[in-house]
Design a protein around this nucleic acid. Structure first.
Length: 593
RNA sequence: GCGCCCGUAGCUCAGUGGAUAGAGCGCUUGCCUCCGGAGCAAGAGGCCGUUGGUUCGAAUCCAACCGGGCGUACCA
């Protein structure tokens, strides 16, 4: 990458200047910082090395240091055209135009691999994200983690890591939530068969509502829905699906008998997981694994982990419960592993789960959690450390909260209240996967967000994703038109690129040259939102290019063939990079819109 | 109370310790007989929450304070 080349040149120059007696040097700087100046009048790249060396050299004037370094920098090579000292002592580097043009050769050669790197080869990463409880559909608030996790996976893979995506299903048998959920389904089932059902209003002030049975017949007795039951419409859908499958086999009172619960629990779980999977697929997300918490109990992993912790003397008994010595690992207090009723807590299950993740050969675990779970970070890490793992290999990314708003009013969403705003039904089905994904990737996950679905739908045409896709489609259109006009696409190596001198052309080339560095930074800082920003910038530069630089001759403007051919190369390079970028984001790159 | 996160343009948000703090939306004014106007150009709009500190240099790092969110279970 160009930055590495320049960095090495500068370090060598500093060393050469020192050896030539230009200045004393207490220690060699290890990292030279090169940046792209915001103002292009400050060169293609800019180095602050002279400012940094002020202390180490004992010289007072950074501008003087800079000029002493410059004396030892080669400007006759193929990279640096000229160097200027500016401001308090910045060294502004101007690259040879050749270098910029040659980016097109590299893009041509690497094509879909342009932007890929190898610095994470050997990393085996497991990203676990969304992992919504199987008691309701995937909500729009899950959209942020879904988009983040998926694109983060793409980013790490682009840097050479082997990445797997995993969804953890909290289906533990001692989960009371699942019992209540299954019971809610059973009651809706009976209602569908014809029993009237009295349902508590979601407003505790109001009286219960008596709903008729769903069938033509009216069966007795009349039943009542629990106060803390799950009220969502999707519960009724599951009940209908069960009727489609088994009919009235669980007719009253069988559905409410404890021995039927196992069936309802299993059926609801199966149907909920299928629905979640479908919703995430519609969002463009394909998991490698759907991991069942229950499998940890069934395989004995949880017991094994607890035994393991006891053997390592990381657990002790007190007041009838088994406690993890988490406070020894930075947690504020010790946590219960096994309750006095002998049931294991999720702390034990989570420790077993992460033990399992490591045992599958992953050396880097990433969990994406909502900020409301930040209190659990310390205890999970304590559990992992107590098992003897290096906790730095477990990384927990906390996304800030997504709150829902409808026309300016806060929506207190909830599965029990039954007003879940669904990712698939209420957003993806309305605006499409591309717009929905782009929407969630616009901002940093570290910023709290509010989502107004009504607004998002109404403004979907304003979504910047179309601006970017449009730029891509326009490139494709021009390239197709060029071909019919007799300008077949050819390798940029066979094109005289030096005629690309218009500022709009050079701006596009610079942006294309930045792409690999941009991907690397986005991967290193877990910042997919940098990509959507880059995409918008890229599209904007392309629009300026279209405006100022005609590729093909038109009625009013004749374009010399040599320039047309060079601009075709530029358009094709931009097309490839834009396509790579959109692919990274999981967004389609249409040739027509 | 304690812990974590967030305060940047009217709104939603970018901003790897660097030079004159940016974008989108909204607002004002221009530009369609030409490769896709889902576009382009120009303009108005800021004590970067406050006060100290570190630094050649702070929106960025540190401290305190002021606002807002979240968390502080033998629930997940």
């Amino acid at each position: 990458m160009i930055i590495d080349v320049l960095t090495e040149l500068i370090l060598n120059a500093v060393n050469a200047a020192h050896l030539a007696g230009e200045f004393p040097l207490e220690e060699m700087p290890t990292a030279v910082k090169l940046e792209k100046p915001a103002d292009k009048a400050h060169g293609d790249y800019s180095s602050n090395i002279a400012l940094i060396l002020k202390k180490s050299t004992g010289l007072k004037d950074s501008r003087d240091i800079a000029s002493r370094i410059i004396k030892h920098l080669p400007t006759d090579g193929s990279v640096i055209d000229r160097i200027e000292v500016a401001g308090p002592g910045f060294m502004n580097l101007y690259l040879k135009p050749d270098w910029l043009h040659n980016i097109l050769l590299r893009i041509w050669a690497e094509d879909a691999n342009y932007g890929m790197a190898t610095n994470r080869i050997g990393d085996r990463v497991l990203i676990e994200f969304v992992s919504a409880n199987p008691t309701g559909p995937i909500s729009v608030v899950n959209g942020r983690a879904a988009a983040l996790g998926d694109v983060l996976g793409n980013l790490l893979a682009s840097q050479g890591a082997v990445v797997e995506r995993e969804f953890y299903i909290n289906d533990a048998l001692n989960s009371l939530q699942l019992e209540k959920f299954a019971a809610s389904v059973a009651l809706r089932y009976l209602q569908e068969l014809g029993h009237p059902l009295s349902v508590p209003s979601s407003n505790p002030e109001e009286a219960d509502i008596l709903e008729p049975g769903g069938a033509d017949v009216v069966l007795q007795p009349q039943l009542s829905f629990p106060k803390d039951g799950y009220r969502g419409e999707y519960v009724r859908d599951i009940a209908r699906a069960i009727i489609a499958e088994v009919g009235n086999r669980f007719a009253y009172p069988l559905a409410l008998e404890p021995e039927s619960m196992a069936y309802f629990r299993e059926a609801t779980l199966k149907s909920m997981v299928a629905a979640q999977r479908e919703a995430l697929q519609a969002f463009g997300l394909q998991y490698n694994n759907w991991f069942y918490e229950s499998s940890l109990y069934e395989s004995g992993s949880v017991d094994k982990t607890i035994r393991h912790l006891r053997d390592r003397e990381m657990a002790y008994e007190q007041e009838g419960a088994l406690w993890l010595r988490s406070s020894a690992f930075g947690d504020e207090k010790d946590r219960v592993l096994v309750r006095s009723n002998e049931k294991a807590t999720y702390v034990a299950a989570d420790a077993a789960y992460h033990d399992n993740k490591f045992s599958r050969g992953f050396n880097h675990l990433i969990n994406i959690w909502g900020a409301d779970h930040h209190g659990y970070v310390a205890r999970l890490k304590a559990g992992v450390a107590a098992l003897g793992y290096d906790v730095s290999r477990l990384e927990i990314v906390l996304t800030q909260m997504v709150s829902l708003v409808r026309d300016g009013e806060a929506v207190i969403g909830g599965k029990r209240k039954g007003n879940v705003i669904e990712l698939q039904q209420d957003l993806v089905d309305e605006v499409g996967k591309d717009a929905a994904r782009f929407y969630f990737l616009l901002n940093s996950y570290e910023t709290p967000a509010t989502v107004d679905v009504e607004l998002a739908r109404r403004q979907s045409m304003d979504n910047p994703v179309y601006y970017v896709q449009y730029a891509h489609a326009r490139l494709c259109s021009i390239l197709a038109k060029a071909e019919t006009a007799g300008f077949a696409l050819k390798s940029p190596a066979d094109v005289n690129l030096s005629v690309l001198t218009h500022p709009a052309e050079l701006e596009v080339l610079r942006k294309l040259a930045d792409y690999p560095a941009e991907i690397k930074i986005a991967a290193d800082t877990y910042s997919p939102h940098r990509l959507t920003r880059y995409a918008r910038d890229m599209a904007s530069l392309l629009n300026v290019f279209y405006e100022n630089c005609r590729v093909l001759s038109g009625k009013e403007e004749e374009v010399p063939a040599e320039i047309t051919i060079a601009r075709i190369s530029l358009a094709d390079g931009a097309r490839r990079v834009l396509r790579n970028l959109l692919t990274m984001l999981g967004v389609s790159a249409p040739e027509k819109m």
